Simulated assay, not measured.
Amino acid sequence: MRLVTSFAAALIALPATALAACPEPAEIERFAADWAAKRPTKGFAVDTLADAGCARDRIVALLERSGGKVVGYKAALTAKAVQERFKANAPVAGILLDTMIVPDGSKVPAGFGARPLFEADMLLVVKDEGINGAKTPDEAMAHISAMRPFIELPDLALAPGEKLEGTQLLSVNAAARLGVVGAVVPLPPGPETVRMLAETRIVMTDGTGAVLGEGLGSATLGNPLNAVVWLAADLAASGRKLKAGDLLSVGSFSALLPPKAGQRVEVRYEGLPGTPKVSVTFE
């Protein structure tokens, strides 16, 4: 991936508020170069969520200037087990670019990142901008048009031994690297769909059918739609608004596992119409 050669020039287009407490441009450039080369890298010295959010936005600005386009967002650390792993007590938000999205059935290198992992996830598709004012799952459901199966392929990026807790995860764009996306599953608005999303069982298996992990929709803040409500509010705090067509990753329904060459992974959604599924093969 080609990155801009001077990050200082890229800063001109950023809002003044983004220039608050944040890692130095040279540190952002260093991280971006390592990220592009898939090299484990050094973390940022970020002590607050504001610092970490600024680092995230500067990284994404570089990726956008290299040809990426924002197509959605991810709510990370929405499941209790994942929060415990990263010593966090709240989610963090990442930004998804079109260059990160690959289609169902894709073959992806097992070494797709510096510290690659995979997990069962789910995308919800924004129907309209009314989602930005939603405060409850029922209100959010009125502004969601569909679900798409999703195997997220995050990259922890930081070298082993580097501190990697919630704040550091936010600073590296919530580890967003790639994701395998399945077909659109339309979702009718209403309380039945809200309940169905919470009760859906998400099952991840390998090529032999052995279960690698599973969880209920309720694993993400009690309902995937709660992750959407949280994400809209968190993004609003940094000046971003959701729009029609945005893809929203709601979080983990399984443990994060390292990929192996030759491994096939499938995720299915038991309880949703047609039992949708999505798969990826690691090379």
Rank of each mutant, 00 (worst) to 15 (best):
L3Q: 03
V4M: 13
A8D: 13
A8Y: 07
A10C: 11
A13R: 13
A13F: 02
A16K: 13
A20G: 12
A21R: 14
C22W: 05
C22H: 13
A26E: 15
A26I: 14
I28V: 15
E29A: 15
E29K: 11
R30P: 04
F31M: 11
A32W: 04
A32C: 15
A33D: 10
A33S: 14
W35D: 08
R39G: 01
R39V: 12
T41D: 06
F44V: 02
F44L: 02
V46W: 01
G53R: 12
R56K: 12
I59D: 00
I59R: 11
L62F: 06
L62C: 08
E64N: 10
S66I: 05
G72R: 01
K74L: 00
L77N: 12
K80R: 15
Q83T: 07
N89F: 04
V92N: 08
G94K: 06
I95F: 00
L96E: 02
D98L: 02
D98I: 04
D98W: 02
I101C: 14
V102G: 05
S106K: 13
P109Q: 09
R115M: 12
L117Y: 03
E119W: 06
A120K: 08
A120Q: 09
M122S: 04
M122F: 07
L124P: 13
K127V: 01
D128Q: 11
E129L: 01
G130V: 09
G133R: 07
A134W: 04
K135N: 12
K135C: 04
A140W: 00
L153V: 04
L153I: 09
P154D: 09
L156G: 10
L158N: 01
L164S: 02
E165S: 13
Q168R: 04
L169P: 03
S171L: 03
S171R: 08
N173V: 01
N173A: 00
A174K: 07
R177L: 00
R177F: 10
R177S: 11
V180M: 05
V181M: 15
V181Q: 12
G182K: 09
V185K: 02
P191D: 01
A198D: 06
R201W: 11
V203N: 03
V203R: 14
T205L: 02
D206S: 08
D206C: 03
T208H: 11
G213T: 09
L216I: 07
A219L: 15
T220W: 03
L221Y: 02
N226L: 03
V228L: 05
W230D: 09
A233K: 13
L235F: 01
K243R: 12
D246T: 07
L247I: 00
L247S: 12
L248E: 00
L256A: 15
P258A: 07
K260D: 00
G262W: 10
V267Q: 12
P273E: 05
G274K: 08
G274A: 10
G274I: 07
T275M: 13
V278C: 09
T281G: 08
